[in-house]
Design a protein around this nucleic acid. Structure first.
Length: 1004
RNA sequence: GGGCCCGUAGCUUAGACCGGCUGGAGCGCCCGGCUGAUAACCGGGAGGUCCGGAGUUCAAAUCUCCGCGGGCCCA
């Protein structure tokens, strides 16, 4: 959602605010220490990892569609960099050309047609296009920096850079030399507003539902019926504006057709299957006079819908057989206008119909059709239909809902139109494309043979030329004698020009066309084919053109080496992934990339599709400023990003923020304690015999291995999940169980082991987390290593990736799992008995533990459970004990393991008198601690304590007076049974197992 | 109209390729605990027609087919 309130980032104590503050700290550190640039310069002699940034079109602010690929790319690049690879290249890139940019400039002037560009001047127009692109680059850099996406923004490639364009020219010459670049007159999707054809991958972006007229004509057959009655063909179309261009009618030779008569005696012919559509009610259906195959209908002559518009020839206005006629729509008799349909054009070619195109380039009728001259083609529908109606040619009229392509930029309906167009003959490369795709690792896998593979198999040609201005000009010149030269570089152009090119030669239009170029053979002035090329060709050339290949020597570009990793949205299957593959196959005969990661499309928090009209499109910069980059990144990694997934502040809060809060709280715990004890952090795994610590180290080793393996496959999802569950385990088990060790007064060996295990774990975890959540990882590193962002401190992101240094102890992990099972069981028993954890119980008996568990823990098992479960005695007993009725329900709560391997447990139901008093003492201690906190005393502050109590409480306090003093850091504890004074300093506590007491607390 | 993908608790997801314990977690909810990690932390519980139906099988969330819903792509 785009919220109404700007940049109101929450702050203060919320987890969200803490994360934002943390990220700010990290950003300042990175900037101050120039960390990003230093990281990019790492590993200059390491093994090569090839990458190319898919250049976004820099003509607008980044949107969600730009966020996801960047988050996924960054994960892969950070991981490989930490593992010592030299990344080629880390250049940022900007896609500068194309219709989007032109449209932006046109809009700024309020122009509606191409003519206005010419009036304004192509030179100034191009200059504005350039300016428009550059205007957004700064915004994009801010966005990327905030996200933590590190690329080389200082040395970015721009597809409008003459050097880049020269490489593109070079490649086009190669294609031409291989017979892969050809001109033809073909039907292509055409936007009359933009006055240019579009490629299929562009058209693909603009389909939507629309309602068009549906008209059925009756076209009079010359000669009429056999008995000379008037006879008509019924012909259906949804584009009445193409009817003046009608040159033939197509029939399906194998299909069944029928004739029927209407009341006036006229005979009508249509496909048999169409009868039901036109006469849904059986009772209305006319009587069929004759039934025959379409082939019997071939060769008839009819009167065109608009006689006199098009000259008749011996080929025109006849019925022809054609394979594309179907029985599913219309009448089975298809209106053929070769200028305006792919099938129509092909049929026209075959039988020699010629073409008739009465539109000017902007889609308005010329005087070839007088009744609609000057009209926009869609506006002619009504006028022409009305005329047909008046003349009695219109038989039925209604509307028709279907999906139809609209221009992806200007949102006007496209048309299919026969034009002169330059093509990349990709159909000739079909088998090679398929072969080069076969070895690519697609994620998700099904794309390889599914959507992408199917598209390649279609083997459609790529319409390359655009009748526009702001793009790489098609470098093809021809002379009046028909001689054609494809120019593959500026030097070659200079030689045709006859002298050096002007300094700072700009190959864009219009300067390129102002250059005098002479035909080397006929010595006549040559003119350039007046097109620019599809901007997708530019970006598809980025892997080599960013290096100015082959003009620049000594670049790291290798003609034999595909990219190791690319990541973009699934929409790029027909976009960048396609154009890169075509170009690399044509030029270098190899695949363009080894591993492709494709993310799905974003839905909003409610699972609804994001669309501009709904206003639910997330602004990623805003989202990051509110939620933080790491929560945003984690939310993506933890989602099923290869499919469509929800993305919004709610989702980020629920999925991305949560695991980070837990982790940062663990860190907070560590730091709070570390500030007191100052045990040096351990960069290597501590040697310890503590089973809890050894368990954590083993879990860490397992996680490290799993995360690394996942990231090797660029599987951020599994990696993030593995980290998330380790964080969970640290927090819910290791830390909780280790707390008593941190409370110890002195730095005992156990306490040291806890510190070292935790610091080592957190430092390693920081490394594992670095590719995914670089900010939190840095925070973890700085705070645990003790570097604390001081000037000159090392950054985590300049350090190598952590390697597991401890072998896993699977036996111990299995044993711990069983211990956790016991803990869970006994907690349930306590719940059942209604005895809170603070109240100690006498005894716990356990049976059915695996042999391995007992071996792994030796005699440490009992103390571990004793503390965790607050029982005085833990006995391991033989399973037989649980079979009889030895445990009376009066005394014990019981859980019998039912499945094999499940332990049984019996717990004392009630505390003894003695334990009850101990429990009461603990209740009092807890309240004293709360009071200390209320008074904002430091952890280490000593106090004097006075307590007033009666009955059981008084007895409990007397019995545990010393212990209370120790727990509360009290130099003295005085007990009174008198009435307490009613001064405000005396704090009253109620409801301690039904009783109340007072306390007075002073700093000693 | 065609192709590809997805559908597991209110939400995010594991399990599916390779059929087999009682479908597992986290968040949220309810109950409780803890109280110097504190807008934090911990336990327990409720909550699932594994989208529906049919088939294969001793056995189906998992394999097959047919629907329904959603997404993306194509015509």
């Amino acid at each position: 959602m785009t919220p109404a309130t700007p940049k109101a980032a929450p702050s203060g104590g919320t987890p969200q605010g803490q994360v934002l503050a943390m990220e700010q700290r990290v950003l300042e550190f990175w900037a101050r220490e120039n960390v990003a640039a230093r990281a990019l310069a790492l590993n200059s002699d390491g093994p090569v990892f090839r990458f190319t940034e898919g250049p976004p079109t820099a003509n607008g602010k980044p949107h969600v569609g730009h966020l996801f690929p960047r988050v996924l790319k960054d994960m892969g690049l950070r991981h490989r960099r930490m593992k010592g690879y030299r990344i080629i290249s880390t250049m940022a890139g900007w896609d500068c050309h194309g219709l989007p940019v032109e449209v932006e400039v046109e809009k700024s002037h309020g122009w509606t047609s191409k003519k206005q560009i010419l009036e304004y001047g192509v030179g100034p127009f191009a200059a504005e296009c350039r300016k428009s692109v550059l205007a957004y680059v700064e915004t994009w850099q801010q966005f990327s920096r905030r996200l933590g996406f590190w690329l080389d923004y200082e040395d970015a490639y721009f597809t409008m850079d003459p050097k880049f364009m020269e490489s593109v020219w070079w490649s086009l010459k190669q294609l031409h030399g291989k017979g892969l670049l050809e001109k033809g007159h073909y039907v292509v999707p055409y936007c009359p507003r933009c006055e240019t054809p579009e490629a299929t991958h562009e058209v693909a972006q603009g389909y939507r539902d629309t309602t068009d007229p549906s008209v059925t004509l009756r076209l009079r057959l010359v000669g009429g019926a056999p008995d000379a009655r008037p006879a008509y063909l019924l012909v259906w179309t949804t584009t009445p504006w193409t009817l003046p261009s009608n040159l033939a009618v197509a029939v399906g030779p194998e299909m069944d057709y029928v004739t029927f008569a209407e009341e006036d005696g006229s005979e009508y012919t249509l496909a048999e299957s169409a009868l039901e559509r036109y006469f849904p009610q059986e009772k209305d259906r006319p009587k069929v006079l004759a039934r025959f195959k379409g082939s019997d209908l071939v060769g008839r002559t009819y009167e065109p819908p608009f006689p006199g518009i098009v000259a008749s020839t011996s080929e025109r206005f006849h019925t022809y057989p054609a394979p594309f006629v179907t029985a599913e729509e219309g009448t089975g008799l298809v209106h053929v206008a070769p200028s305006f349909g792919v099938d129509d054009f092909q049929l026209g070619q075959e039988v020699g119909l010629g073409v008739f195109d009465p539109l000017d380039p902007s889609g308005r009728f010329t005087d070839l059709v007088p009744q609609v001259v000057g009209k926009w083609f869609k506006d002619a529908d009504k006028i022409l239909s009305e005329e047909l109606h008046v003349r009695g040619v219109l038989w039925r009229r209604s509307t028709y809902k279907h999906t139809y392509p609209f221009c992806w930029r200007c949102d006007r309906p496209l048309m299919y139109r026969a034009l002169d167009t330059w093509f990349v003959r990709t159909h000739k490369l079909r088998d090679e494309l398929l072969a080069n795709n076969a070895g690519v690792l697609w994620d998700p896998e099904h794309l390889r043979d599914g959507r992408f593979g199917n598209f390649l198999a279609e083997g459609k040609d790529w319409a390359l030329s655009r009748n526009r201005y702001w793009g790489t000009p098609l470098p093809i010149w021809s002379c009046p004698k028909g001689h054609t030269v494809v120019v593959g570089g500026f030097e070659e152009l200079a030689s045709l020009h006859g002298r050096p090119l002007p300094a700072n030669f700009d190959p864009h239009r219009p300067t390129v066309d102002e250059l005098e170029v002479t035909c080397p053979d006929h010595h006549e002035r040559m003119t350039r084919e007046p097109y620019v090329i599809d901007t997708w060709y530019d970006s598809g050339s980025a892997p080599f053109a960013q290096f100015h290949h082959p003009f620049q020597s000594g670049t790291p570009f290798d003609t034999g080496a595909p990219l190791d990793y690319v990541a973009e949205g699934i929409d790029q299957t027909r976009g960048w992934f396609y154009t890169m593959l075509v170009i690399s196959t044509a030029l270098f005969g190899r695949p363009a990339y080894r591993h492709v990661l494709c993310h799905g499309m974003a839905l909003d928090d409610q699972g609804k599709k994001m669309s501009k009209s709904k206003g639910n499109v997330a602004d990623p910069m805003f989202t990051m400023e509110r939620m933080g980059a790491d929560p945003t990144r984690l939310a993506i990694y933890l989602s099923s990003y290869t499919e469509s997934f929800r993305f919004g502040e709610l989702t980020i809060r629920q999925t991305g923020l949560r695991p980070l809060t837990t982790l940062l709280n663990v860190l907070e715990f560590y730091r709070t304690n570390w500030d007191v004890d100052r045990v040096p952090p351990s960069e290597t795994p501590p040697t310890t015999s503590d089973p809890l610590d050894r368990w954590l180290l083993s879990r860490l080793a397992g996680t490290a291995e799993a995360v690394d393996l996942s990231l090797e496959r660029f599987d951020a999802h599994s990696a993030a999940q593995a980290i998330e569950s380790l964080v969970q385990e640290i927090s819910t088990w290791w830390l909780r169980r280790s707390r008593p060790r941190f409370w110890q007064e002195e730095v005992t060996p156990e306490k040291r082991s806890a510190y070292e295990t935790l610091s080592y774990t957190l430092l390693t975890l920081a490394g594992l987390l670095a590719p995914l959540a670089p900010f939190s990882a840095e925070e973890l590193f700085q705070k645990v290593s003790g570097n604390d962002y001081r000037t000159g401190a090392p950054s985590l992101h300049l350090l190598p990736y952590p390697r597991p240094q401890v072998p896993r102890d699977l036996a111990l992990e299995g044993a711990m799992a069983q211990v956790l099972q016991v803990v869970e069981t006994v907690r349930r028993l306590r719940n059942e008995a209604g005895v809170r954890s603070r109240m100690p119980l006498e005894e716990l008996r356990i049976a059915g533990l695996a042999e391995g568990t007992l071996r792994a823990f030796g005699d440490r098992l009992a103390p571990l459970l004793q503390e965790e479960l607050n029982v005085k005695r833990v006995e391991l007993t033989p399973p037989e004990e649980f079979q009889g009725s030895k445990f009376s329900p009066e005394v014990w709560v019981l859980s019998r393991g039912e499945k094999p391997g499940e332990p049984s447990a019996a717990l004392s139901r009630k505390p003894s008198r003695e334990l009850f008093l101990e429990g009461l003492a603990r209740e009092v201690v807890r309240r004293v601690q709360m009071t200390r906190k209320e008074r904002k005393l430091a952890i280490s502050d000593q106090i004097r304590l006075e307590l007033w109590a009666e009955g059981d409480l008084a007895e409990a306090l007397r019995a545990h007076q010393e212990w209370i003093a120790k727990e509360c850091l009290a130099t003295e504890v005085r007990l009174s049974t008198t009435t307490p004074p009613t001064t405000p300093e005396v704090r009253r506590w109620d409801d301690v197992e039904g009783a109340s007491f007072h306390l007075l607390l002073e700093k000693a």
